[in-house]
Design a protein around this nucleic acid. Structure first.
Lengths: 217, 217
DNA sequence: TACGTTCGTTATAGCGTCTAACAACGATTA
DNA sequence: TAATCGTTGTTAGACGCTATAACGAACGTA
């Protein structure tokens, strides 16, 4: 790579790093191009040499986030041996990832950035997360039923590149994700604040319910 | 009430109505005090006679939203006779409410407004939603176990003013909410867009899973 | 050394929140 | 009736934000 391009890439990374700091401190709205520049010892407009606009920067943050989350999920799943263990690993790894940077989780799965359109490689990363959960699903020998939802699930699996999975397995992985997300999104939004309930215990209970639900199918 | 105060209240309501329009069209960030004023045939700063600042307006929108959602949930539950019917009613009513104004749902349960602190009567309304779901739960004669989570649940029920419910019932109601929210928050954020999956079918499946899960306990 | 690209600067347009100072209006009171 | 006071609107402006344009300096290359 060119020397110039190396520096360019460094600058881009530094800007994104600072943007993540601002995200953690003040939320999405707190990410300001001017402020990032100031912290880098540079004026605001200078950064427009590196990012088309503020939305482009946010988009990259989202893409990077998906990649990071996919890596996290895959590593966690790979560390397990039994289906139950893989599911527990994945679930708790995803939660740890979310709690490590709540605002980043919200950036990915919370209120969508207006006008945001996910780039293709971001969709790939999102699919990798689902694929990791699919790997956590155990064997299933049920036939591919012909309910409308089953057909949609089969098509979804094909488009994701996850072949050889039954609709039941696909639905299972999706259900795991939506149930975990239900708890996580409320936790990162601090909605359990006044309840006196420990989100940790709630999450553990839901994970164990998922394990029990799959094993007794 | 004073004549002056009546007009004042009318103006406040009109401003909030327009704010909801802007919310529906452009999301939370699209709510602009200046723009609201313009649409009311008034300059921007005039509205500061009615709301301390933009955040105060958003806070009222959130409070109103909780009240409206609580009414919706209560009405739906009251229309059912059996526990299963009450749960189905509540679930689909909540979903209809969310889809009717996706951005409002996100305003309540999505990325939190920075610095937002829920007023007491908003917490009451939120509790009414949980109480409605509790009403949908059927009879339960299990003993109040002494697990940490059970104790927290019991305390939560007390603080909500929902006495006479077992920890299992409380956990059930909470689980209903988090699972429905998991699907709903993804649906309103349009996360199923590229999947080819019909959120309606997914939601129905999850509701029926909840019904089956409770009845086979 | 000369050249073109890249990168940073300042100036500026435009929009947003929000405050301050001032004018107009209505209701109350002397 | 006339003076007064609180309410509500106005304009002007401070300040921050995104984003563009015009300009100049630095850099690698020929």
């Amino acid at each position: 790579m060119d020397r110039r391009q190396q520096y360019r890439e460094q600058t881009r990374q530094e800007a994104k790093r600072i943007a993540l700091d601002q995200l953690a401190e003040h939320g999405t709205a707190g990410i300001s191009v001017n402020a990032i520049g100031k912290r880098m010892g540079v004026t605001g407009p200078a950064l427009y040499r590196y990012f088309a606009n503020r939305d482009a920067l946010l988009t990259e943050l989202i893409s990077d986030g998906y990649l990071d989350l996919a890596d996290t999920a895959e590593t966690a799943v790979a560390a397990g041996t039994t289906p139950a263990e893989r599911l527990r690993n994945a679930a708790h790894a995803i939660r740890a990832w979310a709690l490590d940077a709540p605002h980043r989780y919200l950036l990915l799965f919370g209120t969508p950035v207006p006008g945001y359109e996910a780039p293709a490689h971001t969709l790939d990363a999102a699919n990798r997360v689902m694929a990791a959960l699919l790997t956590a699903a155990g064997e299933d020998t049920s036939a591919g039923a012909e309910e409308p939802l089953d057909r949609q699930l089969a098509g979804w699996g094909e488009r994701m590149g996850n072949h050889g999975h039954t609709p039941r397995q696909l639905h299972w992985a999706l259900t795991v994700w939506t149930r975990l997300h239900g708890l996580l999104s409320l936790e990162v939004a601090d909605q359990f604040r006044h309840s006196g309930l420990d989100p940790d215990l709630l999450f553990h209970a839901e994970v164990e319910a998922l394990v029990a639900c799959w094993e007794s199918r």
